[in-house]
Amino acid sequence: MAEISPEEVQHVADLARLALPPEELARVGRELNRILVYFQELQELNTDDVAITSHAVAMENVYREDSSRPSLPVEEVIANAPDSAEVFFRVPRIVDK
């Protein structure tokens, strides 16, 4: 497996909205590569007959019926908000990339 490139590290950092200085990027790149090595080892296993797994528990069709119940009081809803205004959450400007 090819090593993760500095451009790919930058892309992942951008996706996670992390502003990393160059020396950090290099360090994170080395760490990511070490993780990829583990996966390389796992890749050696023959999994041709194994279905792709997304869940550790073999369950399906878990539903609930369509019924409602009271929601939280609005004071509790916004209790943990870092910033709020009356009954609203208040957030800083989000710049779309």
Binding site: R64, S67, S68, R69, S71, V74, V77, I78, V87, F88
Partner: peptide, 13 residues
């Protein structure tokens, strides 16, 4: 199970 409702007071559902 919050109500699916249009026009309720903000953050009350």
């Amino acid at each position: 199970q919050c109500r699916n409702e249009f026009g309720a007071a903000p953050n009350s559902r």
